[in-house]
Amino acid sequence: MGSYLSKRAVWSGISLFLLVVMVFFMARLTGSPADLYLPIDAPNSMREEFARLHGFDQPVLVQFFTFLRGLVMLDFGESLRQNRPALALVLEAMPTTLLLAFYSIAIALIVAVVTGALAAWRPNSIFDRIATLLSLIGASLPNFWIAIVGVLVFAVGLEWLPTSGTGSVAQWILPVAVLAIRPCGLIVQIARSSMISVLSAAYVKTARAKGAKSRRIIFVHALRNAMLPVITVAGDQAAGIINGAVIVETIFGFPGIGKLMIDSITYRDFAVIQAGVMVTAIAIFMLNVVIDIAYAILDPRIRMN
């Protein structure tokens, strides 16, 4: 296990580094971002001064080496927008997004797996048809629309929930629900089809021959075997949310990494873009390790290879 993790870490480290280098050069290719930070009527002297202050007047390679030097000490430079260390900005934003991702995926997984498993038990029954319809709707609806409708219905119309903000538990209900809908829809589909194929497996027949009740067959025998593709999809969705639930963060005022990245890209805030890419990539790497561990726990055949 230890050697496996360290091998993964080394390879991921290399990919991470290449990624950051690539983002560095691609971002710089767009030229000096001075125009974005100075009012439109700022004279050229101010633009030059801005460029000089932040090192954009240097040749790209020189900028690159300066960056590398800082990287060794985990110093990504300062945010152009806020004159604070870029890494600090990113690390402030990350926990919010991670929590959003965690809660949404956890809820989506639990709801979807149970629903999918029960739907698979009686395919084409009323329950199955309704579950399939709802899951397809959920997977197809755009986040933005659900969020706004959610606010209009639950906050403005029924006044059950607050519209936005991060302080109280009630304020997390809508954003987490909105973020969970699409993964839930997708996972219901996967769980259902995976369960259907597992339920027709030979060892399920054995379990029935042993006299097992349907609950045992579904939740003990079939479910674990059906979970592998579900974990894959859930992991993919989690990665998507970590990368930036931009819309939800913007609408509900959550200061997360998605919003930070979009703003940084629009404003060409290079340091934050780089720090953000790095930290997000590390988060995804950890997520992949967690998924691999989940695989190994679920399926002993994978464990032993």
Binding site: A202, Y203, K205, K210, G211, A212, H221, N225
Partner: peptide
């Protein structure tokens, strides 16, 4: 019927690899 299956009447199948739960 379930009380009888496995207890009074039992069954073994053709391909034991696929008939045993791999996990």
């Amino acid at each position: 019927r379930r009380a009888i299956s496995g207890k009074k009447i039992a069954m073994i199948f053709q391909d034991p690899l696929s008939h045993l739960n791999p996990v």
